[in-house]
C-alpha cells in the first residue's frame, strides 16, 4: 500500500542522484518473464464484454482517444476537420462523448486550438524532434516551448532511445526533466518510449520507471511510426509500472498505448487490462488514452450498432 507519499518520493529522489545510483535502481527492478507476461495479456484478452459493459467501454474508449494526425501532408484544413470530429465525433448522435484530445505536430497547434475552442477537447502536440528524437537538446526544448506557447495542453515527447540503449540513463532522465520544465505548469507531459525499439520487456519496465522518476504525467508506448507499436503485453507491463509507482510514491501517472489499435474489440481489451491491472482509478481519460486515428470510426460504428441493433457501415461515420 502507498507508504507516506512524501518520504517515499524522497527515497526515490536519491535514485537519480548519479548515473550509478540510477543505473543500479533500474537494473534492480524485478525482471519480466516474456512468456508469462504475454500469456497474462492474452488471457485478459478473452474477457467477454457484452451489452451494458460494452456500451460503457465504448463510450469510455471514445472519451480516451487522442485523435491523431501526424503526416507530412497535414494542412490547417485537415486539422480543422479533425478538431470538429474530436469535439463531436458522431454528428447524428449528440450523446456521443468528445474525444480526449487531438494530437498534431507543433506547427499545427494554433489551427487545432481554434478548431476545438470552447470544448473539453485538449490539444496535444508531439515535440522533441518527433519521431526520431535525433536533434540537439536545445532544438528539442525550443520545439517544446513553441508548442506550449502556441497553446498546447499536452506535449508528447520521445526519449533518446540511442542514449537509453547505450545505458546512458541519466542523459535520458535529464532530457525528460528539461522537457518537463519547458512544459511548465501549463502542459502535461507524455513520454514516448518507442517500445518497439527498446525491444525487451525488461527495457520497457526500466524506461517506465525512468520516465516516471523524471516527472512524466503519462508514459506512452510508441510513435506509431515503427513496425511494432502498442501491444497488449507492453501496455500491461506499463500499467503494472504505474500501479507500483503510485504504491511506492503516491504519485499517479497515466498510460497511453499508441499505434496499431484499430478496432473496438482491441480497445476494449486494453480497457480490461486497465481495469484488472492498474484498477478503476485509471478508467478515466485523465489517466488513460489511446493514440489512434482510425480507431474512433470503428468505435462509432459499434456504438451505433449497440444503439440501433443495426450495423450501418462506414458510410455513416465521417471521414476526416
Amino acid at each position: 500500500m502507498p507508504t507516506n507519499a512524501s518520504t517515499a518520493a524522497h527515497a526515490l529522489t536519491d535514485v537519480t542522484a548519479s548515473h550509478a545510483t540510477l543505473r543500479r535502481f533500474l537494473h534492480g527492478l524485478p525482471g519480466v518473464d516474456a512468456v508469462g507476461l504475454e500469456a497474462r495479456a492474452a488471457s485478459l484478452g478473452t474477457r467477454s464484454i457484452k451489452t451494458t459493459a460494452k456500451a460503457y467501454a465504448i463510450d469510455l474508449a471514445i472519451s480516451m482517444v487522442d485523435l491523431t494526425t501526424l503526416e507530412g501532408a497535414d494542412t490547417p484544413g485537415k486539422v480543422r476537420a479533425l478538431g470538429a470530429k474530436a469535439v463531436r465525433p458522431d454528428p447524428t448522435d449528440r450523446t456521443t462523448p468528445s474525444t480526449a484530445a487531438v494530437c498534431v505536430y507543433p506547427d499545427m497547434v494554433p489551427a487545432a486550438k481554434a478548431a476545438v475552442a470552447g470544448s473539453s477537447v485538449k490539444v496535444a502536440s508531439v515535440a522533441t524532434a518527433f519521431p526520431a528524437g535525433r536533434a540537439p537538446l536545445s532544438v528539442k526544448l525550443a520545439d517544446v516551448r513553441e508548442a506550449v506557447a502556441a497553446g498546447a495542453d499536452e506535449i508528447d515527447m520521445v526519449i533518446d532511445r540511442g542514449a537509453f540503449l547505450a545505458g546512458d540513463y541519466l542523459k535520458v532522465y535529464d532530457e525528460i526533466t528539461a522537457v518537463k520544465e519547458a512544459c511548465g505548469s501549463e502542459a502535461r507531459l507524455k513520454v514516448i518510449f518507442e517500445t518497439g525499439e527498446l525491444s525487451t520487456y525488461d527495457n520497457i519496465r526500466r524506461a517506465s520507471w525512468l520516465g516516471m522518476l523524471a516527472g512524466a504525467d503519462f508514459i506512452k508506448t510508441s510513435t506509431g511510426k515503427v513496425a511494432v507499436n502498442a501491444t497488449p503485453a507492453n501496455t500491461l507491463l506499463m500499467l503494472e509500472a504505474v500501479r507500483d509507482f503510485r504504491a511506492q510514491t503516491g504519485v499517479q501517472v497515466g498510460v497511453k498505448p499508441a499505434g496499431g489499435i484499430r478496432t473496438s474489440k482491441d480497445a476494449i481489451k486494453f480497457l480490461v487490462l486497465v481495469n484488472e491491472t492498474a484498477g478503476e482509478d485509471w478508467l478515466d481519460n485523465h489517466w488513460f488514452r489511446f493514440g489512434a486515428s482510425s480507431l474512433l470510426n470503428d468505435l462509432l460504428m459499434q456504438r451505433q450498432k449497440l444503439a440501433t441493433g443495426r450495423y450501418s457501415g462506414p458510410d455513416y461515420v465521417t471521414v476526416d
Partner: peptide, 10 residues
C-alpha cells in the same frame, strides 16, 4: 466493485 462491471456473458 468497479465502474467497469462486466455484464453476464454466459
Amino acid at each position: 466493485a468497479s465502474a467497469f462491471e462486466y455484464a453476464p456473458a454466459p
